[in-house]
Amino acid sequence: MANIRDVASRAGVSVSSVSNVLNGRTDQMRQETLVRIENAMLELNYHPNRAAQQLKTGHAKMIGLLVPSIVNPSFAALAREVDLAAKNNHGYRVLLGNTYREEDEEQAFLTDLMSHGVRGVIVVSSSIEKSHFSEAAENGLVMVNYDGSSVTDAESNQILYDSVSMDNRQAGRIAAQYLIDQGCREIAFVTETTRTISRCHKIEGFLALAAEKGMKTHARVIEGKATKAYGDTEMVELGNQLAATISELPLKPDGIVAINDVLAIGLIAGLRSKGIRVPEDISIVGIDNISLSGLITPALTSVAPPLADMATIMVERLISRLNSPHINAEEFLFTPTLVVRDSVIKRPG
Rank of each mutant, 00 (worst) to 15 (best):
Ile282Gly: 00
Leu55Gln: 08
Pro298Asp: 13
Asn20Met: 10
Ala154Val: 13
Leu338Glu: 04
Leu249Ala: 10
Gly214Lys: 12
Ile268Asn: 03
Phe109Tyr: 13
Thr301Gly: 07
Arg93Lys: 12
Thr335Val: 12
Leu267Gly: 05
Arg199His: 08
Lys56Met: 12
Asp342Trp: 11
Val18Ser: 10
Tyr92Asp: 11
Ala243Phe: 04
Gly120Ser: 08
Asp112Cys: 13
Leu207Gln: 14
Ile290Gln: 07
Tyr146His: 15
Glu234Arg: 00
Asp104Met: 09
Met1Gln: 10
Ala329Cys: 12
Val124Gln: 10
Lys216Pro: 12
Val142Cys: 11
Thr301His: 03
Ala219Cys: 11
Lys346Gly: 00
Leu295His: 13
Cys184Glu: 07
Leu179Cys: 07
Val123Asp: 08
Gly231Asp: 07
Ile4Cys: 03
Lys346Ile: 06
Asn289Arg: 05
Gly255Gln: 06
Arg199Trp: 05
Ser163Ala: 14
Lys228Phe: 07
Val15Arg: 14
Ile296Phe: 03
Thr227Gln: 13
Asn39Thr: 15
Ile187Thr: 04
His132Ile: 00
Glu331Ser: 14
Leu267Thr: 09
Ser291Gln: 13
Thr301Leu: 05
Arg25Gln: 13
Asn145Arg: 07
Ser16Arg: 06
Pro73Leu: 02
Asn45Pro: 00
Tyr100Trp: 09
Ile327Thr: 09
Tyr46Glu: 02
Ala51Lys: 04
Met29His: 09
Arg173Cys: 08
Arg80His: 12
Ala137Thr: 11
Gln31Cys: 00
His132Leu: 05
Ile70Ser: 02
Asn240Val: 01
Ser115Thr: 13
Tyr230Pro: 03
Ser343Phe: 08
Val236Met: 14
Ala304Trp: 05
Ser293Trp: 03
Thr337Met: 07
Ser165Arg: 14
Gly294Lys: 14
Asn260Phe: 11
